[in-house]
Simulated scan of single mutants.
Amino acid sequence: MTAAPDGQDEGADDSTNSRDYVSSLARGLDVLRVFNSTRRKMTLSEVAAETGNTRAGARRILLTLVREGYAVADGRLFDLTPKVLELGFSVLSSKGTWDIARPFIEHLSEEIRESVSAAILDEYNVVYVSGTQFHRVISVGITVGRRFPAHCTATGRVLLAALPQDQWPAMLDSVPLTRMTDRTVTDREEFRKILEDVRDKGWSLVDQELEIGLMSIAVPVCTFSGDIIGAVNVGIPTLRMTPEGMVNEILPKLQTTVENLSSALRR
């Protein structure tokens, strides 16, 4: 991509309002890409020529990258530093997270003889990214990619509860509390108290709020940096388990599984 001159918004597609297009950011990305494509140190003049920037514009971008630690200057030559890897590391590592998680999920499923799944938060929904179904006459099967409302699922509640405290007011005002069953909590003040309890306990139990006859319990998953990136969930039909059984029998095994998984992610 050739960067647009200062003040112009070329390069945005038809679905993007030109006022939302940050041309200076696009020019900075062009500079990063040109180093990646040439795989060599470059002078200011070379960067300007390769990207279509003016020398003054290229200089400002390069010096900004140097100041932020993403580039170094060696005399007349500029080069990128390994810090640029941070820009994509979180995305790449999260994609591999659930491959790492799968053996832990499968082991827990075999141990408790029930279905186990993992989900991430996408605004006010949860998206299932991994899981295994234990085949019984009556079983809980959730396919990868399936979405459910976060407010009435155990995974959704532990992930909403883990949001930074300053995001809670907006979240509590905006999250749709759609009634899925006659047990679904739809009162916002009650929902806030539930999330506070989930945050304090570190786990969530949902009893037939998504679907009558289904209970689920979930625990959040942390990365090496301590960030919560998803949750592991056990779903069991109510005819096979009571809420007390979920807490006393299933939760300790689920917590141990997630602790072991989180340790593996920190290595």
Results as ranks from 00 to 15, higher is better:
Pro5Val: 12
Pro5Ser: 10
Asp9Val: 10
Gly11Trp: 05
Ala12Asp: 00
Ala12Gln: 00
Ala12Thr: 00
Asp13Arg: 08
Ser15Trp: 03
Thr16Gly: 01
Ser23Pro: 08
Arg27Ala: 13
Leu29Cys: 07
Arg33Trp: 09
Arg33Lys: 09
Arg40Cys: 13
Lys41Ile: 07
Met42Gln: 13
Thr43Trp: 06
Ser45Lys: 10
Ser45Trp: 00
Glu46Thr: 09
Glu46Lys: 11
Glu46Arg: 06
Val47Gly: 01
Val47Lys: 03
Ala49Asp: 15
Ala49Asn: 09
Glu50Ser: 07
Glu50Cys: 05
Arg55Ala: 13
Ala56Tyr: 10
Ala56Met: 13
Ala56Pro: 06
Gly57Val: 08
Gly57His: 11
Ala58Glu: 06
Arg59Pro: 03
Arg60Ala: 14
Ile61Arg: 11
Leu62Phe: 10
Leu63Gln: 15
Thr64Ile: 09
Glu68His: 12
Gly69Glu: 11
Val72Cys: 05
Arg76Gln: 15
Pro82Cys: 08
Pro82Gly: 08
Glu86Val: 06
Leu87Asp: 04
Phe89Ser: 12
Ser90Phe: 11
Ser93Gln: 12
Ser94Met: 09
Thr97Gly: 00
Trp98Val: 07
Pro103Asn: 11
Ile105Ala: 05
Glu111Pro: 14
Leu121His: 12
Leu121Lys: 14
Asp122Cys: 03
Tyr124Pro: 01
Val127Met: 04
Ser130Phe: 03
Phe134Pro: 12
His135Gln: 13
Ser139Tyr: 07
Gly141Arg: 15
Gly141Asp: 14
Thr143Leu: 14
Gly145Thr: 02
Ala154Ile: 00
Gly156Pro: 03
Leu160Thr: 12
Leu163Gly: 09
Pro164Cys: 07
Val175Ala: 05
Pro176Val: 02
Leu177Thr: 05
Thr178His: 05
Met180Pro: 01
Thr186Trp: 04
Glu189Asn: 11
Glu190Cys: 08
Phe191Ala: 10
Arg192Tyr: 07
Arg192Leu: 09
Arg192Asp: 12
Ile194Gly: 05
Val198Thr: 10
Gly202Ala: 09
Trp203Arg: 04
Ser204Trp: 05
Leu205Trp: 01
Val206Gly: 04
Glu211Cys: 00
Pro220Val: 06
Pro220Gly: 04
Ser225Ala: 08
Gly226Asn: 02
Asp227Pro: 00
Asp227His: 14
Val232Asp: 01
Thr238Ser: 11
Met241Pro: 01
Thr242Asn: 04
Glu244Cys: 07
Asn248Arg: 14
Asn248Phe: 10
Leu251Gly: 04
Lys253Glu: 11
Thr256Ala: 13
Glu259Gln: 09
Glu259Thr: 07
Leu265Ile: 01
Arg267Phe: 02
